[in-house]
Nucleic acid binder design. Structure first.
Lengths: 205, 205
DNA sequence: TCATAAACTGACTGGTTGCTCAGTCAGTTT
DNA sequence: AAACTGACTGAGCAACCAGTCAGTTTATGA
C-alpha cells in the first residue's frame, strides 16, 4: 500500500510539478494538457483521472504554491531571531527577494493575471490568494509592531505601512523577473530607503 | 478621398480600440480574432487586411498605449508647475495613481505577462516597453534631482531611489486592479512614507 | 488463486483557433 | 468606357484544444 501510494504520488506529483512550471512560465491558456502529458510521460487521460479538469489542476498547483510559500516563511522565522523590529524588517526583505529567486516559479505564478481573474468567480482560488497575501502582509506588519515596541521603528500605521513596503518589495521582485532592472543592484538602496521610512528619527547630515 | 481615408481610419481605429480592451482585460491568447471582428462589426478578413497577424495587432496596440501614456505625462508636467522637488514627487505619485484609474486598460496591459515575454524575442516590443519605463523612471528621477537642488530632498542615489519609488507606486496600482486592497485608503500613508524616505531630516517626535 | 478496485491508456469527439484567398464592389484614373 | 485600385468579405482550412470513455494493466486483500 505504501508502495502504491508512493507510485500514485510520484505520478500525481510529477504532473503537479510539471503543471507548476508550465502555468508559471507559459500561463494558463498557453499550457496544453497534451503537452503536459507528453512531458511527464503519461497518457492524456491520466491527468484527467487525477484532476477532473484543467481548472482543478490549476487550483491544486496554487494550493501547493500557497503551502510551500507559507512553509518557507514559517521555517525562516521559526529559526531566525532578530535583535529588534528594524532588523526583522531587513530580514523579511532579504528573505522575500531571496525566495523570489529560488522559488521563481511560485512567484511567477503570483505575478500572472490568471489567478486573480479566477479568484473573482472561484472562492477556493480567492481563498488561496488571500491566505498567501495575509501571511506575507502579517509578517511585514509583525516586524513593524515589534520595532515600535523596542523603539527601532517610529510612529507609523503598522498595517498600511506594511502593505506599502510589501508592494514595494513585490514590485521590485516582479520587475526583476521581467529583466527590466536588477533587484540586486538596488538591494542596499532598498534597505536604506526602508530604514529612512521607518526610523524614529534620521541622523543629522 | 478625405472621406475614404476617414472611413478606413475609423475601421482601423475601431479594431485597435477593441483590441486594446480585449488584450488588456482578457489577455493575448484568450482574445480571439473572430470575437474581435464580431464586436467591431467587421468581417474576419478585414482585421488581417489592416494588421498582418495577431502579434502585429498587439504591437500596434502597445505602440498606441506607449504614445498615449507618454503624451499624458508630457501634458501634465508641461502645464503643472511645482514649488519644489518634493512637491513634484507628490504630484508624480498622484498623477500615476490617477492615470492608472482613468486609463485602466493601458496599465492593465502593462501589468500582464505577455508584453514582457514577447519583448524577449521581439525588439520592437522591447523598444516600446523600454520607452514607457524610461519615460516614467525619468520623471521620478527628475523630481528627486530637482528636490536635491532646492533642498527639499536629501542625499540619496537619484536613479536607484526613483526606481524604488516607481516600483512601489506601480505595485500599489497593480494590487488595486486585482482588488487585493485599495490604493485610495493608502494614499496619505504613501505620501507620508515617501516624504520620510526623501526628506533631508525628519522633524523630531 | 481470484475477484475487485484502482491506475492508466490512447483513440476519439466536437469545437475553436489564427489565418488564407478567391472574389465583390465603390470609387478613381486613364 | 475601360482599366485599375484598395478596402472589404466570408467560406474554408489545417492545427490544435479540453475532455471522454471503453477497455487494458496493475495492485490489493481475502
Amino acid at each position: 500500500m505504501q508502495g502504491e501510494i508512493k507510485k500514485d504520488m510520484s505520478r500525481k506529483k510529477a504532473i503537479l510539478r510539471a503543471a507548476t512550471a508550465f502555468f508559471s512560465q507559459k500561463g494558463f491558456s498557453e499550457t496544453s494538457m497534451s503537452e503536459l502529458s507528453k512531458i511527464t510521460g503519461v497518457a492524456g487521460g491520466t491527468i484527467f483521472y487525477h484532476f477532473k479538469n484543467k481548472e482543478e489542476l490549476f487550483l491544486a498547483v496554487l494550493e501547493n504554491v500557497k503551502a510551500e510559500i507559507i512553509e518557507e516563511f514559517g521555517r525562516y522565522f521559526g529559526e531566525k531571531k532578530f535583535e529588534n523590529g528594524m532588523e526583522m524588517m531587513e530580514g523579511v526583505i532579504f528573505f522575500y527577494l531571496y525566495l523570489a529567486g529560488t522559488m521563481e516559479d511560485h512567484f511567477l505564478l503570483l505575478h500572472r493575471h490568471y489567478p486573480y481573474k479566477l479568484a473573482e468567480v472561484n472562492p477556493v482560488c480567492r481563498g488561496h490568494l488571500e491566505a498567501i497575501y495575509n501571511c506575507l502582509a502579517d509578517i511585514f506588519e509583525q516586524a513593524i509592531l515589534t520595532g515600535q515596541k523596542d523603539g527601532s521603528v517610529g510612529d507609523v500605521n503598522p498595517r498600511k505601512t506594511a502593505l506599502i513596503i510589501f508592494s514595494m518589495i513585490d514590485g521590485i521582485a516582479r520587475f526583476k523577473t521581467y529583466n527590466l532592472y536588477d533587484a540586486g543592484a538596488l538591494y542596499n538602496e532598498i534597505l536604506a530607503a526602508c530604514r529612512r521610512m521607518l526610523c524614529r528619527d534620521t541622523p543629522a547630515a
